[in-house]
């Protein structure tokens, strides 16, 4: 895919269609599928594990400026952010701010 439109074809087919097709099915299926059925539980498990895999890849094998930081600092920042999120009423904003602050503080201390 060296053409200029190659990436856009991927974005439209593998991105837009592959995502919106579920929304369209949701519109037409509305109410006919049980949300707590075993099949959907498994499907949600697969989706969750896939996205979780992306998260940990971003931390273990980062690109760009983040690649200059040691792995332990990235893991520490993630752990502190998640701990803050859990202990303070599951507030995402507090988790994010804590994680990023720990990373910057550790980076400056190095």
């Amino acid at each position: 895919m060296q053409t200029w439109w190659g990436p856009f074809a991927i974005i439209l087919i593998a991105g837009w269609i592959a995502t919106d097709v579920w929304r369209w099915i949701g519109v037409f299926a509305g109410g006919r599928l049980r949300e707590d059925g075993e099949l959907l539980i498994w499907v949600r498990c697969v989706a969750t594990a896939l996205v979780a895999g992306v998260i940990s890849k971003l931390v273990f094998f980062p690109q760009g400026a983040l690649a200059d930081t040691p792995l332990w600092l990235r893991l520490l920042a993630m752990a502190c952010g998640f701990a803050a999120f859990l202990s303070l009423r599951q507030s995402v904003i507090i988790g994010v701010l804590t994680g990023v602050s720990v990373l910057v503080a550790g980076w400056m201390a190095l």
Partner: peptide, 23 residues
């Protein structure tokens, strides 16, 4: 493009039950 579409489709299945619940 096909494995990519498959991975993205797997990651976005959760949009289906969400849309269903909203309708």
């Amino acid at each position: 493009i096909l494995p990519a579409a498959f991975a993205v489709a797997l990651a976005s299945v959760r949009l289906m039950p969400m849309t269903m619940a909203l309708m």
